[in-house]
Design a protein around this nucleic acid. Structure first.
Lengths: 84, 84, 84, 84
DNA sequence: CGCTTAATATAGCCAC
DNA sequence: GTGGCTATATTAAGCG
């Protein structure tokens, strides 16, 4: 452990731990906000499961996906595989 | 799907989706901050894995933790294992 | 814990634990075999990273993927999003 | 890509990929077997989570485990925490 | 509340 | 040997 013999070692650790805990709380708060939005959407008749799929799909940048496909297809064609 | 026939249905869905996406970005930002703190801690000589255990332990009370440990020791003893 | 008072409880637990451990060893052996194949492929000039992509792509059944896309596109069109 | 111009290059790649796929299937089969054992254990009243901890513990020797625990306690004490 | 799926954490591997 | 990356294992969330 760092700072052996210095009484400030515990303070440093405490500070690091508390910073993480504070951020974890913020993160949880945001997760709660998201959950609330899905509840709201559901109450308006939308399907949360499909919404999640859309959000996941949008997360993958189109260009990145196309680049990946080009790379994959180069090799896939060598296998004669049916990659749609 | 709600609002079939109203052109505002897509807008409502879009709004909901974008609100979730915005919050997801914030959440990811915080996750990155946390990761950075663990890197900083590591660079100062602290063990990130142990820190995570400490942070998890601070979330549950002493009794709960003792019960979990007692259960593990019971299983270990049933196997004739040295579990310290 | 089950079998409280029966001396066979520990035997049952031991049996379950040892079955899992045995299977874990087998699984590890196969993982080693796979690692060896990638080393062999590399020595023949193939790119392991791309091979992994191909393997992952083949794992997703084409029909399943197309069904998912149809579902996603239904909703995506409501957002006017450019899902390629 | 190796063997450019030789029609056997694709076949070599295919062979490598299929060998990996075959082993992945075997590996998955074993993973399923393990999952089944935990279900069986659960149905007999054992706690799968505790069993996993026991199995993990059996992989490391007593000294290592004691050192890890001592480190956690050192951190906890630096924070003035009750860690039992 | 159990069962399935997503998020997170850990560990192993590879390249630098 | 350190740091990023991938894969696995564990945990939490969501859904019926």
């Amino acid at each position: 452990m760092p700072g052996e013999g210095h009484n400030s070692a515990g303070e440093e650790l405490r500070s690091l731990v508390e910073r993480v805990e504070r951020l974890n709380e913020e993160k949880q708060g945001i997760a709660d906000d998201i959950k609330y939005i899905f509840l709201e959407a559901k109450s308006r008749g939308w399907d949360a499961k499909v919404m999640r799929k859309i959000i996941a799909a949008r997360k993958v940048d189109v260009d990145t996906r196309q680049e990946e496909r080009a790379l994959i297809e180069t090799y896939a064609s060598a296998l004669g595989m049916d990659y749609v």
